[in-house]
Write a protein that binds this DNA or RNA. Structure first.
Lengths: 355, 355
DNA sequence: CTGAAAGCGCTTACAG
DNA sequence: CTGAAAGCGCTTACAG
């Protein structure tokens, strides 16, 4: 069996300093010098700290957890970590968790109900204090069950019912896209709306439709197609759109990777971007600006969503009441909707953010 | 404070069944019916199991860990989870870990020595039994220190010194690219080699150079440029290459995302792929096949690298001797090196794998 | 102010 | 075969 790295214990520090473990614990757990002085003389405090430091003492989290009934562990479930958006959100979660002294476990659910349920059980059995779901289904049925079991959780990326959540204001993001497309004269917009159970795509779609309608542009139901938020899903959905006539003059793919798939489908059909079809994505992924045709997209604060999600969960664990949080997106105009020449003449640089 | 989800304890099951916790523990920890019979009568066993099931009993891992001195926790450090390649490798690690009853913690190091050191300490303080590094620097100095402290670890993706590792056979992958470029008549190849401290890019570059040299094609030093393995890094590196004359007739970007950046740089200069410049990536990322110009690339078994890495670590923890493992890559030819017309005439479908 | 003691939830040598 | 007891490493009410 793997020999353990020798970790110092409170007892060792106590023996070395000639005090009891109680005192060592109290001193080491004191936030300030002042509060430490309630437990020991200045000199003892120094000796204890020196001994702890020399051993690289660090309290055993299993022992602390067992004693205090707090694991300082958070469980995170995402559809898939391979997805840049969710990976970024998770980075935010983990960063904030580490700062607050928590550790996280992440797993994929692949949006599969069975896997989601199993993953949740595994996390509960690990005694997480709370959970963060990035894979909420819009109906919220599964989550209802989790709530009824008394487990606290926060949703990120996708919202559902009135459960605590931190999302991008996707409806607003959709509006920004609709307004932009109208402003560049597009009148026939097709939308790749993502999976029908994810609020992200649904809200973005609704926002775009609302903005377009207000400008007198109607989006008939057959212009809205569902599919996965990845390149392959985007290509397939685009092909369905492009197989029918007339062709739209703009496509809003509610996800950057789906938009890349659309690019492929357009190229196959020798359609040019943006002259034949303007293309807009969502999320302002690192790739968007670097694509052969730089992609107009909506920047969503992914990292921030993760951070805030973790913070909201900690508030919840402390018994606070929390409100769903919608963080504002910004439109980033690039050459997939406004050609380089046109953008030069209008003063847009084609890469910076602009509302 | 967040009220805990009530978890059943051994004591509760014992009370309910009229036996001692010792017996419950022994029965529940028996692998088979037969071995359970050593501790209790068939009827008692059934009663114990029924009680445990009805409470959804699951042993408290902190208590088990404290008692057995085994946390069943593994620490994983990657350069960045946002990177599709590392995210996929991590998915493999976590999948295998879950199967074996282990849980994992992941963190980013961003290839920053300070962050890496800090993350390692945090993981050690969480009492992980072993670690997996996906961010090894080629010199292996940091890792040497970790090894000297008695912590067992395995490297994935990148190798360093003779430390246990699971990687793609990157030298072979590079060779496949070199041979392919020669076979389609390219004689002036530029290479985006990635960061100079990562074995991945170094080995791929060396492999390509070796294959090209054997075919009589020399790659002078100025044709090898270093940079980050992402779209922006690829674009910047490509610009350095394309600013000098003569232009190369092929570019091997040792990473798919870097290759996407190269595509952008080529388009800016109105250079066509593959006619002016053939382009090859590495990893066969989900995007590669769906790009406007489908990308010729080398498929590496990312998920498998993760799985095998975890398995190797468990072997190590059991005291086994292990050998570094190199998993074989395959070349996938697409239109970025062989145009659709050409591939039609040669029978290549432009998307399936082929050596 | 500080020490001795209890106890978190387990597993497992030790008795009987 | 099975129970009682010890003990993993902590924290913290309880005494003094």
């Amino acid at each position: 069996m793997g020999r353990r790295t020798p970790h110092a214990t409170l007892q060792m520090i106590a023996d070395e300093t000639g005090v009891t473990p109680s005192t060592v614990s109290r001193v080491l757990n004191s936030a300030s010098e002042a509060s430490a002085r309630r437990w020991a003389s200045a000199e003892t405090i120094n000796r204890i700290r020196a001994a702890a430091a020399s051993h690289g003492y660090t309290p055993n989290p299993q022992a602390v957890g067992l004693r205090t009934q707090r694991s300082r562990l958070i469980g995170v479930i995402v559809p898939r970590l391979q997805d840049y958006v969710l990976a970024t959100i998770y980075e935010g979660i983990d960063e904030a968790a580490t700062e607050k002294g928590f550790a996280t476990f992440v797993t994929n659910s692949l949006d599969d109900p069975q896997k989601r349920a199993r993953a949740t059980e595994t996390l509960l059995s690990r005694r997480v204090e709370g959970m963060i779901f990035g894979d909420a289904q819009f109906d919220g049925e599964f989550l209802q069950g989790v709530a009824e079991r008394g487990m606290k959780f926060v949703l990120v990326s996708r919202r559902a019912r009135d459960f605590p959540s931190v999302t991008c204001d996707d409806h607003l993001g959709g509006r920004l896209v609709g307004e932009h497309l109208v402003s560049i004269g597009r009148r026939d917009v097709a939308i790749l709306a993502g999976e029908p159970y994810a609020s992200t795509g649904l809200d973005r779609t609704r926002g775009a439709i609302d903005a377009l309608r207000e400008a007198g542009v109607d989006v008939p139901p057959h212009r809205v197609v569902h599919g996965r938020f990845d390149a392959q899903g985007g290509r397939e959905a685009a092909e369905r759109i492009l197989d029918s006539r007339p062709l739209p003059d703009a496509i809003f793919a509610a996800n950057d990777f789906a938009a890349i798939g659309v690019m492929g489908a357009l190229r196959d059909r020798k359609l040019s971007i943006p002259d034949d079809v303007a293309l807009v994505g969502y999320n302002d992924t690192a790739l968007a600006a670097e694509l052969p045709t730089p992609l107009t997209t909506v920047r969503s604060p992914m990292h921030e969503i993760g951070r805030r999600g973790l913070e909201m969960l900690l508030d919840l664990l402390q018994g606070a009441e929390v409100e769903p949080l919608r963080l504002p997106p910004t439109l980033v105009v690039r050459e997939s909707t406004v050609s380089a020449e046109a953008s030069r003449s209008t003063g847009t640089d084609g890469s910076g953010p602009s509302v």
